[in-house]
Amino acid sequence: MGIRLDKPFLPLREDVIKTVQAQLGVYQLANESGEVCYIGCADARSLFGLRGELEQHLEDPGVSGFRVEVTTAYHTRRQELLMLYQADHGELPVRNKDYPFQLGRLSPA
């Protein structure tokens, strides 16, 4: 498994979200320029997994795309994606600024 989530973004629309499985996993949201603006996860409290989480972002202003990865390691995978973003950009995605836990430092080769 590559450590980056680099599959193409899909449009954040109700009909597309309906095709997403109600599984545990991680997801990224993109703004209209196709840049990652949020990294989230569907944890075991999410009623309909990734599908349910994405539905909650349908009305978010400035968000136009999403991509998902199904994984039971949703906590650590989310942290990994946040750490990678931080290593690449020197800061967290704009909608993750209030992430409540300390993140580690990665220096991927």
Binding site: A73, T76, R77, E80, M83, G104, L106, S107, P108, A109
Partner: peptide, 9 residues
């Protein structure tokens, strides 16, 4: 000193 990757378990 490099942390190259995290190892999921």
């Amino acid at each position: 000193f490099h942390v190259r990757r995290i190892v999921h378990t």
